[in-house]
Simulated assay, not measured.
Amino acid sequence: MSIIKINAITVPADSGDELAKRFAARAGAVDNQDGFEGFELLQPTDERTTWLVVTRWRDEESFQAWSTSRAFAQGHAQESGEAPAQKPVGLSSELWSYKVAGGSAGNTK
């Protein structure tokens, strides 16, 4: 049964585009991780300033293996030897964990 990990990132109202840009620059970085099933970056469409990073994993072990991996550390580093340090965009973040308890496939047409 898949598990869902949601990173709720609160950003200043004028920083959402920068957050999206940074995620776009790393698109596909986790795709080949064992147990990874999918990713979505959700942008608020109202006055909220909390963006959601939704990932789906085969199981908790797969997520934990990725979150303690070198690839995770490199992808989340604030600076590297090749580029100047980037200030964090988020003011705060919170990790939420869920399992699928029900749902439907929807209309596939």
Rank of each mutant, 00 (worst) to 15 (best):
R56C: 05
R56M: 09
W57F: 11
W57E: 12
R58F: 03
R58S: 13
D59H: 01
D59K: 05
D59R: 02
E60Q: 03
E61L: 14
E61C: 02
S62I: 10
S62F: 04
S62E: 07
F63V: 00
F63N: 01
F63G: 01
Q64I: 02
Q64G: 02
Q64D: 06
A65L: 11
A65E: 14
A65S: 08
A65I: 11
W66D: 07
W66N: 02
S67G: 03
S67Y: 09
S67C: 00
T68E: 07
T68A: 04
T68N: 07
T68D: 00
T68W: 00
T68Y: 00
S69E: 00
S69I: 00
S69Q: 01
S69V: 04
S69T: 00
R70E: 06
R70Q: 15
R70G: 12
R70N: 09
F72C: 07
F72K: 03
A73Q: 08
A73V: 06
A73D: 14
Q74Y: 04
Q74W: 11
Q74A: 15
Q74C: 12
G75Y: 11
G75E: 08
G75V: 13
G75A: 06
H76K: 09
H76G: 04
H76I: 01
A77S: 12
A77K: 00
Q78E: 15
Q78P: 11
E79L: 07
E79H: 12
E79N: 06
E79D: 14
S80F: 12
G81Y: 14
E82Q: 12
E82N: 09
E82K: 14
A83G: 07
A85L: 15
A85S: 09
Q86Y: 03
Q86K: 10
Q86H: 09
K87Y: 06
K87E: 07
P88V: 04
P88K: 05
P88Y: 01
P88I: 06
G90I: 02
G90Y: 05
L91H: 12
L91K: 14
L91R: 13
L91F: 10
S92A: 13
S93W: 08
S93L: 13
S93F: 11
S93C: 04
S93P: 00
E94I: 10
E94W: 09
E94C: 11
L95Q: 14
L95H: 13
L95T: 12
W96D: 09
W96V: 10
W96L: 15
W96C: 14
W96P: 06
S97R: 13
S97L: 07
S97W: 05
Y98T: 05
Y98D: 13
V100Y: 02
V100G: 02
V100F: 05
A101S: 03
A101L: 15
A101V: 08
G102N: 04
G102R: 03
S104C: 11
A105K: 10
A105V: 08
A105D: 13
A105C: 11
G106C: 01
G106R: 05
G106K: 02
G106Q: 04
N107S: 07
T108R: 14
T108C: 03
T108P: 08
T108V: 05
